[in-house]
Design a protein around this nucleic acid. Structure first.
Lengths: 328, 328
DNA sequence: GTGAAAGCGCTAACAC
DNA sequence: GTGTTAGCGCTTTCAC
């Protein structure tokens, strides 16, 4: 079934059918006839032929580092919701945490004539910038600050400071901060610095730092080594995954949280509520981030002015894993 | 940049360029010239124009019930891996657990000329069957058995029986089975029946059953009510989510697993290893399922013979949450 | 309001 | 091996 068949059935020219399909002016009579024929035949236009001419394909491409990450999935839910109600099509591509594939995907999406690209930020290299520039379609980067590219980032300053204050407000003086490698700007640098800033607002606070892995299993092994050595009464982990790893290690070593020490993470992952005690964390607005990403690219597509950097708010969620210091 | 521009730059006809692009025979000289020009211009063919002619678009569509489910994501990882190395493009559409959207997506993917569709099975209705029939492209359904449509399902019989045997082999006689509603065929019926069968192979085993929710929070509340009343020394939950909920309730009520009772789930979810003790479960091969789904549609596309129903193996993973009954 | 005609960028006979 | 030509299914002037 092509537009030609429909035109023939209706006894009109295919251009008339095209107009009918695209909301151009058509006589009532023709319209009704066409209505009927389209209904009967179940005709629907070939999207490729349409896209061949059209400037817009109504496709939005996303590039995510992995399919099995809590935050990615939440963000995607947000994106999908927003896109769906606007009848836009979502294409998800997976870079498998591989910079080369990330760049490849930028070009691939451009080749598929995606109207815009939402890139879930990891490390942004010059090759990224080059690709983004070359494809010449709106791109927004999520979660990582970038010069010259529109980005949506978390308010790491707020998150870290709030957490730091929360911990000291409970009376903790000796804090263990489990951080990650500095190469990660958002978490390794900004978040860490903000936590320290929050903690330091109280004098006489001692902060001990240890670098651990992003990966649960590795962090768990590291935690088993670290826990017996620390004198801290509160442990702040820069991600929930690390906090979960610490909790597991603590159980294993027969520490009781929060009696032996308070524990907190960052992210607001679901898993922090399924363990017991539930873990105090900072909830990042992943779904909202996804939605905002869509409204942003839409504005960009309409050539509206959008701030190059938008900051998402987050909030501290105090749960059972942190409590007032117990004097012993 | 179109094929015409390239042809002009090279001083050949565009059909030659097309042949060059598609691996047809081209003289060495022309090839080298074209190589250079393509590299310099960064030209890449318009996929829409290609797809307009081609029978195949190299796009595989998937329809998933939600973006934030562990099993879906694992399966998608498997699909993506397999697709990626074959240079096939993955489109993921979300039905948001909504039957109407699921059907819509079938048609939408067909309209986009997806070569095949992988549908993550929930409840399969006649409308599904009708749509699948109408779009007339290969469809495979994952995780739910369907008449007349190719499907990949888990071996619930094996999973349930193995688990049942494991528990009785530890000496447990009084078992609490936390199951879900019967409307779910795979889990509510098949899995439950198999567990009971496995348990019953040992005489003198008493099984108590309680129906609980699929949803963590609800199951957790129910577990808090159920635990104090049961005399069971082992609790089998038909999903890991339920097992996690029981574990949380147990902690809360100061039961110690596995001393007070053994606990087991089904699924092999990651979360069962991050809690402590780690939970005994049956690992379902989600990634492999995804990969198999791809090889299956590929065979279908090549008009090869494929069994209408393929069964995936699974395996019991014994961890810390189950132990020999302690005589008290 | 409608139709004829000219592409959109590419592929695939077919003849040379 | 290469060029010519005729589409793929649709949109979009531009006359009428």
């Amino acid at each position: 079934m092509t537009i030609n068949d429909i035109a023939q059935l209706a006894g009109v020219a295919k251009s008339t059918v095209s107009r009918y399909l695209n909301g151009g002016s058509v006589s009532r009579k023709t319209r009704e006839k066409l209505d009927e024929i389209v209904r009967e035949t179940g005709y629907s236009p070939n999207t490729f032929a349409q896209s061949l001419k059209a400037k817009r394909t109504n496709i939005v491409g996303t590039i995510i580092p992995r399919l099995d990450s809590y935050s990615s999935n939440e963000i995607l839910e947000g994106i999908d919701q927003e896109l769906w109600q606007r009848q836009l099509q979502l294409i998800i591509t997976n870079s498998d945490q591989n910079v080369a594939r990330e760049i490849e995907n930028i070009y691939a999406l451009a080749r598929q004539k995606a109207d815009a690209i939402i890139l879930f930020g990891g490390v942004i290299t010059n090759d990224h910038l080059k690709a983004i520039h070359e494809v010449n379609i709106p791109v927004v980067i999520l979660g990582q600050e970038t010069p010259d590219v529109h980005c949506l980032v978390h308010d790491e300053a707020h998150a870290g400071i709030t957490m730091g204050r929360h911990i000291t407000s409970l009376g903790h003086q000796k804090i263990l901060l489990l951080r990650v490698k500095k190469e990660d700007r958002a978490i390794g640098q900004l978040r860490r610095a903000a936590i320290i800033e929050g903690l330091s607002q109280k004098a006489s606070v001692e902060v001990e730092e240890q670098e651990v892995s992003f990966v649960f299993e590795e962090a768990y092994q590291q935690a088993k080594l670290i826990l017996p050595k620390t004198k801290a009464t509160a442990i702040i982990c820069v991600t929930d995954t690390i906090a979960l790893a610490v909790m597991k290690a603590a159980h294993e070593l027969s520490y009781v949280i929060p009696n032996d020490f308070s524990l907190a993470g960052f992210g607001g992952y679901n898993a922090t509520t399924i363990v017991s005690p539930a873990i105090t964390t900072v909830r990042y607005p992943y779904r909202e981030l996804g939605k905002k990403a869509v409204t942003t690219i839409l504005q960009l597509l309409n050539a509206e002015d959008v701030p190059i950097k938008q900051i998402m708010k987050n909030e501290l969620i105090v749960r059972e894993s942190t409590q007032k210091i117990t004097l012993s």
